[in-house]
Design a protein around this nucleic acid. Structure first.
Lengths: 347, 347
DNA sequence: TGGAGAAGTGTGAGCGCTAACACAGCTGAA
DNA sequence: TTCAGCTGTGTTAGCGCTCACACTTCTCCA
């Protein structure tokens, strides 16, 4: 990579001069146009290598009106789920020759969302993936008019916007049915915040499984996804473990809406002397890397975050490139992972 | 936001026409130039709002030769550390009016690194942050010639490249000293992979603390950061808990190089009937959100990943904007978080 | 009252690329 | 031999902005 005389990076014109052709021919070589003689192509390539030439993306974007840049807006990318989705998404986009820029928000209200969209729009993104499950964000999104396509992840399928989601409902059913199958009379539920669509779907799946099995439906308690909230709820639950308290059914199994809260629940139960799974079986959702080493190893539902990310990019690029719009809503299948925390109680 | 007659987005010329000024005046208003009459400014602003005009970033980049885009290359952004750093970094960059694009790599060998750099360079990034601690990546980086500044995160300070790092050495010393202070004869160590600079620094800090205290230095065992590797090593450790086996000192305290492995160690000890902290105290590093709810809550070293991310952006933008280069290497202070896993053994 | 200098605005060129078209040279069927 | 229709290449005109400079209008002091 030789530096040119001035310290400006070489332009297409420089390459053309060295190769003894017009800049247009250089352009043709770069974009793989067929009508270029083999010898010419080789000569241009040599000049490119010699000068260390690289196409200027700004000029290209200006001329083509295409930036080949995608935006992502996510709630809290420090968590395992969004971070993994983001990672899968980025890889898929890069493979397709797109650049992806992520904006990580603390809260997704209408204002923050609009601001993030504006930020991305300023940079001329051609499409945006919004990873969020909070109802208010999804509602705000539905109202937003953008000059480019938007795809949601975990935004629910009721929306006019295309989206990808794990089948949360099915996942919740699978765990609940598993717990019933190993002999529990019913299954309690520690829910996620109910303004999250994900949490709502998991609760719905749990309830449906119980009702279908004719099992009593205990009250469900909602946390905020954090281990601490799980711990607090776990303390309440510990009090009624094994006992039939008032009108509520016996507590011998709990389906917790995510693994982090499940960790809190496990800890609270443990502190109260309630054994898992002997006294109370516990299951989670997400299959974070730590889940396998929880005390005890946690039965949970695995989400293929990478697949979700890749699917969202497919949906988005379909729209941008105006291909046949095969799908508007993709669902990724959950996978039940059974571990010691729900081992069959001694009969 | 009105759509213009053609379906092209409005240009500066359109705004100028509506406002009855020249495009240059519009440009001045947009970039906050002082020499514009108040009334003119207001008129232009009105036209901008009316048309829903937005500056075209490609044209701007072409004219100014500045893309205001930064790149990030990271190893595995699905983990808590890199994901949090990335998040802090993105926020700081956005505040400064930069767009950030992250490339998440599986492995960081020279080839992958070069490819990622090329990808980012093609998009005209003005600088890159590389988040990695693997020696081979750092070495490859040192050899790489790029037309823009590069800043490392956790890349070690020996490098010619500017960088930000947590004081891993100090963090390790703090935990080790804490364990000695609560009465342990010595502290064992489960290390991270030794081709990681972070792991190496933690090991060095641990060793130094022991030597300074005149404590015997037990052999250290290296894992790969995963809970599973911690579990395997924990099983070996469980065998020698409390006993003095051969020439090695008694095992009553372990400093594990990260929280995930610590979880594995805790589990292995638990399975073997070794109590924590009564028989063996355990400490980790990172303070992941789950650590507080481990069985038992884990003493660990908190890394302020957000601060690290922000500092790296400061360093990078300093270089890009050619400000006074105040610093080349920033160190972020670790914080010891003492929890139940190292509670003072009953004397 | 004049004119120096500041404040406010407009003009033209050019950033580096692609798209559209023009055109030369070659092939091969009428 | 002719010319329609390819292949291969060059020419020109933007894409939508900023920069440098030119110009007009004010302000204020001699």
């Amino acid at each position: 990579m030789r530096q040119s005389a001035t310290d400006r990076p070489p332009t297409m014109a420089d390459v053309a001069r060295v190769a003894g052709v017009s800049h247009q021919t250089v352009s043709r070589v770069l974009s793989g146009h067929p009508n270029v003689r083999k010898a010419t192509r080789a000569g241009v390539q040599r000049a490119i290598d010699e000068l260390g030439y690289r196409r200027n993306s700004a000029a290209r974007a200006l001329a083509t009106r295409r930036t080949r840049t995608l935006g992502v807006i996510a709630v809290n990318t420090t968590f395992h789920g969004p971070a993994s989705t983001l990672s899968g998404l980025e890889g898929a986009a890069r493979e397709q020759g797109y650049l992806v820029s992520a904006v990580s928000l603390r809260t997704v209200d209408k204002e923050a969302l609009t601001q993030a969209m504006t930020h991305l729009a300023t940079w001329g993104v051609e499409g945006v993936v919004v990873i969020t499950s909070q109802r208010q964000a999804v509602d705000a999104l539905a109202e937003l008019r953008t000059p480019f396509p938007v795809v949601t992840v975990e935004g629910g399928h009721s929306l006019a916007l295309p989206g990808v989601a794990l089948d949360q409902y099915l996942g919740a059913r699978l765990v609940t049915e598993h717990l019933l199958a190993v002999g529990h009379e019913t299954v309690w539920h520690v829910a996620g915040p109910q303004d999250w669509l994900e949490a709502e779907a998991r609760t719905a799946g749990w309830r449906a499984a119980l009702e279908d099995a004719g099992a009593p439906v205990p009250p469900s308690l909602a946390g905020d996804w954090s281990p601490l909230s799980g711990f607090r709820i776990g303390q309440q639950l510990a009090g009624r473990a094994g006992r039939r308290s008032g009108p509520d059914p016996r507590l011998s199994a709990v389906f917790v809406a995510n693994d982090q809260m499940a960790l809190g629940v496990l800890r609270a139960l443990g502190e109260a002397g309630v054994r898992t799974p002997a006294d109370v079986a516990v299951a989670g959702f997400d299959d974070i890397p730590e889940a396998e080493f929880f005390p005890p190893p946690l039965t949970t539902v695995r989400q293929d975050f990478g697949a979700i990310g890749r699917a969202s990019i497919r949906l988005l690029i379909d729209r941008i490139e105006e291909r046949a719009l095969r799908d508007t809503h993709l669902t990724v299948a959950p996978q039940l992972i059974v571990r010691a925390s729900t081992a069959r109680p001694l009969a």
